[in-house]
Design a protein around this nucleic acid. Structure first.
Length: 608
RNA sequence: GGGCCCGUGGCCUAGCCAGGAUAGGGCGGCAGCGUCCUAAGCUGUAGAUCGAGGGUUCGAAUCCCUCCGGGCCCGCCA
């Protein structure tokens, strides 16, 4: 709002002087290094100095003479070469507080129309538990889904389950050969016997042959193995979903690779690709294969179909991507899978399901996939272009994230290095630790409260620690980060929310009008400015696919609220007017913190 | 060999895409704050050649080039 007013004022001043704006006015604006210098500064005089051949200082003075303080602008000051704008704090305060109060749970939300977004995330092989790196994927994806929903998109979250891959084949063999199974949650059992089997296969060529046999059987889609595979992978997915439920992550649709394989989508898409000039038979070493040639697009060629006739992963991904956009003739069948704890429904693809067209049909697709898959993702998006789906290609986004590492190195499902670092393990440890802290903090509270608090604090800490680092940076897993309850943590945000609630709980009557100039403290102004920024943060997070922005923002707001809390008595404020005004402010902080927590999939507790 | 990502105080991190004034936070360190709305808090303080070098520019953490360190991709693998 303020930014907009400043641009308007600059534009008017420039046209009055007959000076041409050198570039987008908004791009000349920045935050001064010291709030005493102003709330926004324009560096436009540096640009004008070049085109008009005058000193920037002189230009700044001349410009400031004709700038009219409109809207939220209180005054304009020139410091050196900068034109600095001060916001009218009382005006901004009234506008912001009213906006927050009126929108309430919608504050920060936008109505961006009815466009539909499909977000694919998690997509773990159904042969193991989620380790903390998968947790990062799920939390990033889930947060993006929440952000885009807030922005008014119709969001559909899909979890792709590859129940036909080599890992499944090895797991089937493991299940058959390893009689003494460890006692654990089902996905952990599979993960453990898979690692053991992988070790044995490395030592025994006969086992390798058997794996290939099983793989071929799965590929054919007929026989006892297929039934067993379905049973095991389904149970594994159920176990995985227990984990994601606990994290507050949910899915609209589970997409099974085997269902896609039998739907005819892959065959259809390959057929269409074959009809384009970019897809040809392989030559030389690649005789008998089908190759996607992308030199025209500056990308290496990619084999789509092996000489034995089977399709590579990328080919399946292309087919799936087309389906997400509703660009295939063949379709899938669906049935209700379950109701999630948050009340939402999860559907699954199914051979026996009813065919309903409401899934897919996306305007925009976001794939939350590891950064190492940048090349194959690019191939997929380029393949859409090859098929003439220019729009769909441009509306395809790879939200690439780097993996979570242990201090000792990478996670490996094959080597089983995830043991002790599964999402289940980490969340359990965090909740246990949180319980100790809750115990210290509220010894007299009931056990039920303590358990609930420990749960949302533990989960909040884990979610925040996975979310707050920008996705393109590798995270080295350290227990002290995942179990961080200090400021700049998930629980710190929750704590500030609970504090705000606590104040509001203690007063019977709140609200009412207040003279807009009762606020005097810089801490109050800072809070107001932060509150005003929230919608922009949400928008930017959605547009740039940066799910860490809400996390950073929430921590900043929580910190600012704590600072305010120390210096500004609310209930015992000096005057009734100030008390009423501060109550409004606290309530608006409460609303905004809650909405931010909601975006991050974290509980906003009234007490903790 | 070709390409992509990362490198910011002891540790973690924001800022980089859209160059601007004194590089923001947090952890840890040190020194303080308990009659008072939740101390999971607050205040103060020390600590940074923004990986290195060069270039562009009035101005570079930010743009360009080279190099160094770490990671990843370039399979009929999965």
């Amino acid at each position: 709002m303020f930014k907009h007013d400043v641009c308007d004022a600059l534009k008017a001043a420039l046209s009055k002087l007959g000076w041409k704006p050198p570039r987008l006015l908004e791009d000349t604006l920045e935050k001064p290094p010291d709030p005493k210098l102003g709330d926004l500064a324009s560096t436009i005089c540096f640009d004008l100095a070049k085109s008009l051949h005058k000193s920037p200082t002189w230009l700044a003075v001349e410009l400031s003479k004709v700038i009219k303080p409109v809207g939220l602008i209180a005054r304009v000051e020139v410091v050196g070469n900068y034109v600095n704008f001060f916001v009218n704090v009382p005006k901004l305060t009234e506008l912001t507080l009213r906006a927050v109060e009126e929108a309430d749970e919608e504050y920060g939300h936008l109505k961006a129309g009815k466009r539909k977004v499909v977000i694919e995330h998690t997509s773990v092989n159904p042969t193991k538990p989620l380790h903390i790196g998968h947790g990062r994927n799920a939390v990033i994806g889930d947060t993006m889904a929440r952000v885009l929903r807030a922005l008014g998109y119709q969001v559909e979250v899909q979890n792709y389950i590859d129940d036909m891959g080599r890992q499944v084949a090895e797991t089937l063999l493991a299940n058959q050969l390893i009689k003494r199974k460890p006692r654990a949650k089902f996905d952990h059992v599979l993960g453990l016997i898979y690692a053991e089997m992988h070790r044995r296969i490395g030592q025994d060529a006969k086992l390798e042959e058997r794996v290939r046999g099983i793989l071929a059987e799965l590929e054919r889609g007929k026989g006892k193995r297929v039934v067993t595979a379905k049973r095991l992978t389904q149970r594994c997915v159920e176990a995985n979903l227990e984990t994601t439920d606990r994290l507050g992550v949910s899915y609209d649709l589970l997409v099974w690779e085997s269902d896609i394989a039998r739907s005819g989508i892959l065959v259809e898409v390959l057929e269409r690709l074959r009809a384009t000039p970019h897809v040809t038979e392989g030559t030389g070493e690649r005789v008998g294969t089908l190759v996607l040639r992308l030199a025209d697009y500056g990308i290496d060629d990619k084999v789509l179909v092996r000489s034995d006739g089977t399709a590579v992963y990328t080919a399946r991904d292309i087919a799936y991507q087309l389906w997400k956009f509703g660009q295939t003739k063949s379709g899938l069948r669906f049935r209700l899978h379950s109701k999630r704890p948050d009340g939402s429904k999860t559907y699954t693809t199914s051979q026996r399901g009813k065919s309903i067209a409401r899934f897919g049909q996306a305007d925009k697709v976001i794939n939350v996939v590891g950064a190492e898959q940048r090349f194959p993702q690019r191939v997929v998006f380029t393949a859409l272009k090859v098929l003439g789906l220019e729009q769909e290609s441009q509306n395809s986004h790879h939200l690439a994230y780097e993996h979570v590492w242990l201090p000792s190195g990478r996670f490996s499902g094959r080597k089983g290095t995830w043991v002790g670092f599964s999402v289940d393990d980490v969340v359990e440890e965090a909740v246990t630790r949180a319980h100790v802290v809750v115990e210290e903090h509220a010894p007299k509270a009931g056990e039920r409260f303590k358990q609930e608090a420990a749960e949302f604090v533990g989960v909040g800490a884990v979610r925040y620690s996975l979310l707050s680092t920008s996705p393109e940076k590798r995270i080295t897993f350290r227990w002290e980060d995942a179990l961080n309850f200090d400021r700049n943590s998930g629980p710190a945000v929750q704590y500030s929310h609970a504090r705000a609630c606590s104040i509001l709980r203690k007063v019977k009557r709140r609200g009412g009008k207040h003279p807009s100039d009762v606020f005097k403290l810089p801490q109050e102004a800072r809070l107001v400015k932060l509150l005003a920024r929230f919608p922009e943060v949400v928008r930017e997070a959605g547009e740039k696919l940066q799910p860490n922005l809400p996390a950073l923002y929430a921590a900043e707001l929580a910190l600012a609220f704590n600072t305010f809390y120390e210096v500004a008595p609310v209930i015992d404020a000096e005057t009734p007017e100030l008390r009423a005004a501060r109550l409004r402010l606290v309530n608006c902080v409460r609303i905004t913190l809650r909405n931010a927590l909601e975006l991050m999939g974290m509980v906003a507790p009234e007490r903790m």
